[in-house]
């Protein structure tokens, strides 16, 4: 379990990093925390010809309050965001979701943007970003573009990022004062979720619900609270069969039926 050979580069600036991407394209991979990438490389399931280590680029280490969004730079670790003093006030959903991400030890190194880039269908940060309708900031030598979360993650581990682009930051909309809840079911503590559910209450009658683990990417839907039961039933039956070793499609649907009302109730209670 040793990685294949690769070139290593540790640029000092974003410009240097994107120049390398322009030169190497798809063959190169960004290394930030490496908590998913290095495991895949040790198993020889990923095979980049170059790793571009961005962890020390000072411009990427920011958590910035932009008013209605919070921007988190690509070098910010999950535990750093979790320890950000304004987190509970400005991004309560993230405060609820981040403790579910891996373990203390992996959050120490794993980055917020790395999790978005990896785009695992059951992972918590992409689900939160999608539920909040945040966005992803991409940079290449050609310039910068901002992609909405719903357009960014396309399918299981597939995103709209082009080979010559890197994620420099993600932007989470501030949702101060709104009721939120996040729950997930995993086989073991810290495992990838069988199902993860995020909820944000929208006024009196609506809620935004995000569901991970039921398809190749998170599903986000606005639901009418009065119709809760039928809305959830429609969601549960609406998914295509999604099955793996740990959970059958039927089990996933039933957990969704059981869990979604609890998460929504918790979000409502927190809003009150």
């Amino acid at each position: 379990m040793k990685p294949r050979p690769f070139d290593y580069a540790r640029p000092d600036t974003i410009d240097e990093a994107v120049a390398l991407l322009a030169e190497r394209g798809d063959e190169a991979r960004i290394l930030a925390g490496g908590q998913s990438l290095m495991a895949m490389m040790n198993l020889r399931l990923a095979d980049p010809s170059m790793l571009i280590d961005i962890a020390r680029i000072a411009e990427l280490g920011h958590i910035r309050d932009l008013g209605d969004t919070i921007e988190v730079g690509a070098a910010v670790t999950q535990n750093r965001l979790l320890a950000w003093p304004d987190l509970t006030a400005k991004l309560p959903l993230l405060a609820a979701a981040l403790p579910f991400v891996g373990h203390f030890q992996t959050r120490n190194k794993g980055t917020v943007c790395g999790s978005i880039a990896h785009a695992d269908p059951s992972s918590e940060i992409p689900l939160s970003l999608a539920t909040l309708e945040g966005s992803v900031v991409l940079r290449s030598t050609g310039g910068e573009r901002v992609v909405a979360a719903k357009d960014f993650q396309i399918d299981m581990m597939t995103t709209a990022r082009r080979g010559d682009e890197m994620i420099t930051a993600v932007r989470f909309p501030v949702h101060t004062g709104r009721g939120v809840a996040f729950r997930e079911v995993a086989r073991r503590h810290g495992d990838f979720a069988i199902i993860a559910i995020a909820a944000v209450i929208e006024g009196k009658d609506f809620a935004q619900i995000g569901i991970g683990g039921m398809a190749g990417k998170p599903l986000v839907q606005r639901i009418v609270m009065k119709e809760l039961k039928s809305e959830i039933e429609a969601l549960a039956t609406g998914f295509e069969d999604y099955e793996d070793l740990h959970a059958s499609a039927a089990l996933r649907r039933d957990i969704l039926r059981n869990l979604a009302p609890l998460v929504l109730a918790e979000a409502q209670a927190c809003a009150a």
Binding site: H246, L251, D254
Partner: peptide, 17 residues
């Protein structure tokens, strides 16, 4: 006795919920 197996047992034995 994983959730998957328990769920299947319950489904074949009078219902899951």
């Amino acid at each position: 006795a994983t959730p998957r197996r328990i769920h299947a047992l319950m489904a074949s034995n009078g219902g899951v919920r």
